[in-house]
């Protein structure tokens, strides 16, 4: 019956009570004094106490979440484990139960061959075994949850340590590079002569930041060298031409030329 009562949505009459008029009308009543057609508009009192239960989608749930004992579920307890105490190592018990399970299955097969009418005993035994195993496993869940938390914390720590290490190594590399590229660091002036700006491919080629810096430095060196050689040859550099043109156009606009 419970199965049939359970449905995803409330039955039609329930939500049909929530009309604008009813909501308005309900304001002058309390849960106790409301007429029957307005009863649905008042939420039921919250369940109170440790044993309180509530109904959700046709099933009864305890307010206080707790694993019911096998005895409470009406199942024979096959292990000698005290089900009130936390279990540290249910390995042995679970192994015993799983072996019994296989044995029961073999007996069931034998029984089906020789005396098929006796099958219910074996099925019942297997059911008890399965429920016992599931129960033991569920009892171990809080323990596993703590263990998972421990490993999460470990991961978090290792991640932080790895990040710190990586940042430090990169910083060391860049500092070493700067020392090398800028021998007189205190002047804070960039010397762009070829010999010092030569990248050390072996140590630093893998670091993208370092590579970018080198790109900029090398470009700067190239531009500078080109400009210098052009100046030496007595020709104005293209940049100078641009500047000159710019100045001429400004003067023209100002009407001075």
């Amino acid at each position: 019956m419970q199965q049939e009562l359970a449905s995803v949505f409330p039955l039609p009459p329930y939500y049909q009570h929530f009309t604008a008029e009813n909501v308005e009308a309900a304001k002058q009543y309390t849960a106790d004094s409301a007429p029957p057609h307005l009863q649905y508009l008042f939420p039921p009192p919250a369940p109170v106490g440790d044993d309180a239960t509530y109904l959700s989608f046709g099933s009864v749930w305890p307010v206080k979440t707790k694993l019911p004992t096998l005895e409470e579920m009406g199942i024979q307890n096959l292990s000698n484990i005290d089900h009130e105490q936390p279990v540290l190592a249910p390995v042995e018990e679970l192994q015993k139960l799983s072996r019994s399970l296989i044995l029961q299955y073999l007996e069931l097969l034998g029984c089906l061959t020789n005396a098929p009418e006796q099958f219910p005993t074996h099925i019942d035994n297997m059911r008890t075994l399965f429920i016992n195993m599931h129960h033991l496993i569920n009892m171990y869940r809080p323990h596993q949850a703590r263990e998972s938390l421990v490993s999460l914390l470990e991961q978090q720590r290792n991640k932080k340590l790895a990040h710190t290490k990586e940042v430090r190594e990169t910083c060391d590399q860049i500092e070493a590079l700067l020392e090398k590229t800028l021998p007189k660091e205190q002047t804070n002036e960039l010397k762009v002569d070829g010999s010092n700006a030569e990248p050390n491919q072996h140590d630093l080629s893998t670091n993208p930041l370092v590579q970018d810096i080198y790109k900029v430095l090398n470009q700067a060196r190239e531009i500078r060298e080109r400009n210098e050689s052009m100046l030496k040859a007595g020709r104005p550099s293209p940049k100078d031409d641009d500047l000159l043109n710019q100045k001429i156009s400004i003067l023209k606009e100002a009407g001075l030329l």
Partner: peptide
């Protein structure tokens, strides 16, 4: 291979607070 076999709840909680300390130190270094 059940996780945390033979480790008691007290030991787990001790390990957690130890890890918490380590994470705090690691954060500072970071």
């Amino acid at each position: 291979r059940l996780p945390g076999l033979g480790v008691s709840e007290t030991e787990q909680i001790e390990r957690m607070s130890q890890l918490n300390k380590e994470i705090k130190a690691a954060s500072e270094e970071q």
